[in-house]
Nucleic acid binder design. Structure first.
Length: 582
RNA sequence: GGGCCCCUAGCUCAAUUGGCAGAGCAGAGGACUUUUAAUCCUUUGGUUGUGGGUUCGAGUCCCACGGGGCCUACCA
């Protein structure tokens, strides 16, 4: 470990990796034996996996990469919490899906019918995005694990030790219990939250009707054998036979599941998490800051893993929320939140990675899909230039390196010829979406390149950004048809300019000639040559002439540079728009 | 009730285990035949929310206060 060296820049990744390694050495010994340092992430595929959720994956990814970089064996283990219950039907989904509430996400059908299940439908796009981002991880499905009985011993342990578990949980349970429902809500939000929690109680049937306190706080919850929902109330548990009897609140089924022989349920979340730490040997696992607050899952889990499983909680960092655009907080149950795939439509993979690595996890930030994108690319390009010089190595260039390559994917794709994003998007703005044409114009304005491929992946992202995210009022709209009124009302000068322009404009346009021609037309009209220096009169004429052209071409007084606009539209289109319809 | 984050130029924000307060945009000036939110150069702009403390040194660490925001308590 090259720590403490003056020359080695450090960042939050370095420190998190230090912690993970220290954790592993404390548990497995200085030489680690054959233990592979395990960095774990977890996510519930209950809806679109948005840019806030992405932080879970990337935080773990960067730390695992750093450990590997030091030559220590490490893995990124990801748990899909697809055995969690389906909680509510998101807006925009067929309300009849309410029927599935309480079933595991992996047992709810895909509303769009393109995947095996609800869970798979939301996993798939993220898996694709992670592949593009160069994130390689071992994935496991909690549904498979639970159904295979992998956790049977741990479940039996938890049930046997449920009094200890309850003690720990109770320690963090403050007052409330009643109180809350009778107290007058102080705000609409609070009222809504209350209503929500009451509704949840109703549907989950946890209010312990008729059940003893002991059974009401049971750490294991069975899914109903008949209807598959977790709307079960435990009615008895036999310590010797491990028979667990329950009644389903929804379908009224009364059944018995045996914890030693059947695999029909799961541990409650606050026990499930520490259980997995101990089973998988997790050395590092981040969580949203909400998981880190006192009484929440991490603090409770930390005690439980020690007391119940004799394990040690992984090193932890809490990360803050990632917003999009102007919004600060996203909810996965609300439709329309941007996902990693959305961001990758407009950002090169290393840039998206960079957004997540350059800030401390605790710092909240936004991924902006608006005008900030241009600046982001500019900053990135400047950083790339700086990073090329080893003498200037610092925390920023370290972030650049972390963003740019991974141990499994190598250097992630960037364009062979780097053209400012601003330029690509403004050319794309007026070229009706043809990559070939954009490439030609880009070449003409000084960015030599062999083919369209040399501009990718940036070109495609610039085209998408321009067409999907630039507001219409900021875009250039080329006229479909000539402006007959304006063309019919030309004064003498204007008529002369247009005629001379069209007479001299070739069918095949080149940038330099076109530039000379456009600036030269007003000179010709004053009896000068194309190459003569302009007089003040000509300069004024140029302004008027340019405005006329913008009026006729794009219905505005100003616009993109005319020579490039001409090349983008092509001679034929220009001719059409500058000639009165007959 | 508890926890966390933020407050830095007119605006949006950087400053990564304490080390010369910095960019972009906006503003001003200039150059390129120059109309353009597609060029380049120069330049203005600061008591880092307030008050204390630690330190040779604080935007950064500690305490208090003010303002803004997020999370949390039952359940997963």
């Amino acid at each position: 470990m090259a720590r403490g060296n003056q020359g080695e820049p450090t960042d939050w990744v370095t420190r998190a990796a230090d912690d993970a390694i220290r954790h592993a050495r404390d548990v497995y010994g200085e030489d680690l034996g054959d233990h592979v340092i395990t960095c774990a992430s977890g996510a519930s595929p209950s809806g679109p996996i948005h840019l806030g959720n992405l932080r879970e994956f990337l935080t773990v990814h960067f730390v695992a990469e750093e450990i590997k970089r030091r030559g220590i064996a490490a893995r990124h283990l990801h748990s899909w919490d697809d055995y969690d219950r389906f909680r509510k039907v998101p807006a925009g989904i067929d309300p009849s899906f309410a029927d599935h509430i309480g079933r595991p996400l992996s047992s709810v059908p895909d509303p769009w019918d393109c995947h095996q299940s609800w869970a798979d439908h939301f996993k798939a796009p993220l898996q694709a995005a992670l592949a593009e981002l160069g994130v390689a991880m071992e994935e496991m499905s909690q549904t498979e694990r639970y159904r295979a009985g992998t956790y049977r011993d741990q479940i039996l342990t938890a049930v046997r030790r449920r009094d200890d578990i309850e003690q720990v949980m109770a320690k963090y349970r403050t007052k409330q219990l009643e109180g809350a429902t009778s107290a007058a809500p102080e705000s609409p939000e609070e009222a809504a939250a209350l209503a929500d929690s009451v509704a949840n109680d109703d549907e989950s049937g946890l209010t312990g009707l008729g059940a003893t306190d002991d059974l009401a706080r049971f750490p294991f919850k069975p899914y109903c054998r008949e209807c598959g929902r977790d709307t079960t109330i435990i009615t008895s548990y036999d310590e010797d036979t491990t028979d667990l009897a329950y009644t389903c609140q929804v379908c009224a089924y009364q059944g018995v599941t045996n914890l030693t022989t059947d695999n029909e349920g799961k541990l409650v979340w606050k026990v499930d998490w520490p259980m997995r730490w101990s089973v998988e040997g997790v050395d590092f696992e981040p969580g949203g800051v909400d998981h880190a607050t006192p009484g929440s899952s991490y603090t409770v889990g930390k005690e439980l893993v020690k007391r119940v499983y004799g394990g040690r909680a992984p090193s932890f960092v809490g990360y803050s929320f990632v917003g999009a655009g102007g919004q600060v907080k996203m909810s996965s149950s609300r439709g329309g939140v941007p996902t990693a795939s959305d961001a990758l439509q407009i950002l090169e993979a290393p840039i998206l990675r960079w957004l997540y690595v350059r800030r401390q996890p605790k710092q909240a930030f936004n991924v902006d899909f608006g005008a900030e994108v241009v600046r982001l690319y500019d900053e990135w390009d400047a950083l790339a230039k700086k990073s090329a010089d080893p003498e200037r190595s610092d925390a920023q260039t370290l972030a650049f390196e972390r963003a740019s390559s991974t141990s499994s994917a190598g250097r992630l794709p960037t364009p062979a010829v780097v053209v400012p994003f601003r330029l690509l998007s403004s050319v794309a703005d007026v070229t009706a979406g043809s990559a070939e044409l954009i490439s030609t114009i880009i070449g003409n304005v000084g960015y030599e390149h062999a083919s369209v491929a040399d501009l990718e992946p940036r070109l495609g992202k610039a085209m998408t950004w321009t067409s999907e995210y630039v507001p219409t009022e900021d875009r250039t709209t080329v006229r479909e048809t000539p402006d007959a009124d304006r063309l019919g009302a030309l004064n003498e000068d204007e008529e002369l300019w247009l005629r001379q322009l069209l007479d001299r404009m070739p069918d095949d346009l080149h940038l330099d000639d076109t530039t000379a021609l456009i600036y030269g037309v007003p000179k010709l009209a004053r009896g000068l040559g194309l190459d003569d220096a302009p007089t003040d009169q000509v300069k004024q004429d140029q302004k008027d002439f340019f405005r006329l052209l913008y009026n006729l071409l794009v219905d505005a007084d100003r616009g993109p540079r005319l020579p490039t606009l001409f090349l983008a539209l092509g001679a034929e289109k220009i001719r059409t728009l500058l000639t009165p319809p007959s």
